[in-house]
């Protein structure tokens, strides 16, 4: 239900391009944890990282082939990340070590 509400909010604020992303490809960050420890996506399919917490978060990876860094994401920020290489991507918040997950990218 939470993800459905989020998808609707995105549709309202950001338009159809983001809203077209499947709601189950959204990772929430409330309470200094990622809402899933693991998610599987196809190469080229974005994962939305939504900071629905009340503090600033970061999302990044140093996994070779899929490095990224969204910088400092304020509460309410949703950032899509599209992975280009198949494999397991270890994702962390550089600020909060309690936030860690794996994005499994498939061909």
């Amino acid at each position: 239900m939470k993800t459905l509400k989020f998808a609707m909010a995105v549709a309202f604020v950001a338009g159809a391009a983001v809203a077209a992303v499947a709601a189950d490809k959204t990772i929430n960050q409330k309470g200094k944890v990622f809402s899933q420890t693991e998610i599987t996506v196809k190469k080229g399919e974005p994962v939305n990282f939504l900071n629905d917490d009340n503090i600033v978060h970061n999302v990044m990876s140093t996994t070779t082939g899929n490095e990224f860094n969204v910088g400092a994401a304020k509460p309410g920020t949703v950032t899509p990340v599209t992975f280009k290489a198949a494999g397991d991507v270890r994702v962390i918040c550089a600020i909060h070590p309690s936030m860690k997950m794996v994005v499994k990218v498939t061909d």
Partner: peptide
């Protein structure tokens, strides 16, 4: 490229691509 704020513009990194950040009501 590293965004200093949550309002990063689209940026193509060497590998994964960080898209346009938007703000929603939470």
């Amino acid at each position: 490229v590293v965004a200093a704020t949550g309002h990063s513009s689209s940026m193509a990194l060497a590998q994964a691509v960080v898209g346009q950040a938007t703000v929603v009501n939470v």
